[in-house]
Simulated assay, not measured.
Amino acid sequence: MNIQEVAQQVHMTKRAIKYYEEKGLLQVEKGANGYRVYTDEHVVILQRIQVYRKLGMELSAIRRILQDPQVEAHELRMLQEQLQDSMEQQSRQMETIQLMLAGASDYGRLEEQLDYQTIASAIQEMIPGVYGKMFMHHFLPYLQIPIVTQEQRDAYYAIIQFWDTTKLHMPLSMKIISCLLSFLHKNQVAGIQEKLDQQLKMLLEPDEKRYAQMKKAVLRQYRMQKYFLFRYLPSSLSKRRWMMELQRSGYNDVFLPNMEKLSPSYREYRRALFAINDKICTELNLVYDEHFCLVKKAK
């Protein structure tokens, strides 16, 4: 079969079929004429993909199922839990609306019945302004989940308390960049989980080419920092001062550890990032000094 015939059979666009091929969900070989040749097996796979997508499953989860059918039950249970949480949230919202229509006016009690749908929604409400914009730009992908454990709830309140009481002196240039980035990315939530999975896979299992590129980037940074002009460029000074300000404020000791408790995906990402950074620095015999500059490790 050609792609047009398959598209008609599975009620899907040719563009969608090609997209699933690009994402690694469908492997199709080319015939002698150079065109892709589709089989009945490809039709079944596309039908499975449609079922999973209509259930709301992420592409990354579908890819894992197609690569290893034994994980299907696990992925379906995970999806079932997410849908159950969503249904419970909607049920509480409907109940609250009914109470309000019936004349309920104890807003303190009504508020206790409701939770934000995601941690991201809660934090965006609790941390307005430039700090909230900076926070959400960096951490939004890891917060598209509800609070389901007491540890998460405690971590959430610790983070809110941190941002509510900490006074940070953010350089003007970084304020402008944070505002611009938050504006550019505020609607880019779709596909977040897939991007996270790809990013984590790159850190956990980098191919030789990618690892060599990361190692080269660290070495380039070390060499650039040795030049006087580079070290004292306004942008370099601003970045180092900001990192030292974060360290002084407790960002690294209070905020980030609680972020790990709040978001399992962030915890996995941060630990993978540290691991590969430590590996590269060890191979290059480098360490970070108190000014967050790369230097040769003392013998």
Score class of each variant (00 low, 15 high):
Pro206Trp: 00
Gly24Thr: 04
Ile123Gln: 02
Asp68Pro: 02
Ala155Asn: 06
Pro206Met: 01
Arg15Phe: 02
Tyr116Gly: 02
Thr118Val: 04
Gly24Arg: 02
Gln161Ala: 13
Leu204Gly: 00
Glu268Asp: 09
Leu55Arg: 06
Tyr142Lys: 08
Lys279Glu: 15
Phe135Leu: 12
Pro206Gly: 03
Asp164Gln: 15
Pro234Trp: 04
Ile192Val: 13
Ile17Ser: 01
Ile97Gly: 00
Phe139Pro: 10
Pro234Ser: 09
Leu140Gly: 12
Gln161His: 14
Met202Ser: 13
Ser178Tyr: 04
Arg210Trp: 07
Met1Cys: 10
Glu245Thr: 09
Ile160Gly: 00
Met57Pro: 01
Ile17Gly: 00
Tyr266Arg: 06
Glu5Arg: 13
Asn258Arg: 05
Gln213Ala: 15
Asp40Trp: 03
Pro171Phe: 01
Pro146Ser: 14
Gln193His: 14
Met87Thr: 09
Leu262Ile: 09
Asn187Gly: 15
Leu168Val: 09
Val130Phe: 05
Gln193Met: 04
Asn252His: 10
Leu204Cys: 11
Val148Pro: 05
Met126His: 12
Ser178Ala: 15
Glu290Ser: 10
Met94His: 05
Asn277Met: 13
Met134Ile: 05
Met202Gln: 12
Glu205Thr: 12
Cys293Thr: 08
Asn33Pro: 03
Ile97Glu: 01
Leu262Asn: 01
Phe135Arg: 00
Ile276Gln: 09
Ile65Arg: 04
Met224Asp: 10
Leu184Asn: 02
Lys299Asn: 11
Ala32Asn: 15
Tyr131Pro: 04
Leu79Ala: 09
Leu46Ile: 11
Asp68Cys: 04
Asn2Glu: 09
Pro234Val: 11
Phe230Trp: 11
Met259Phe: 05
Tyr211Met: 10
Cys281Asn: 14
His138Ala: 10
Ile97Gln: 02
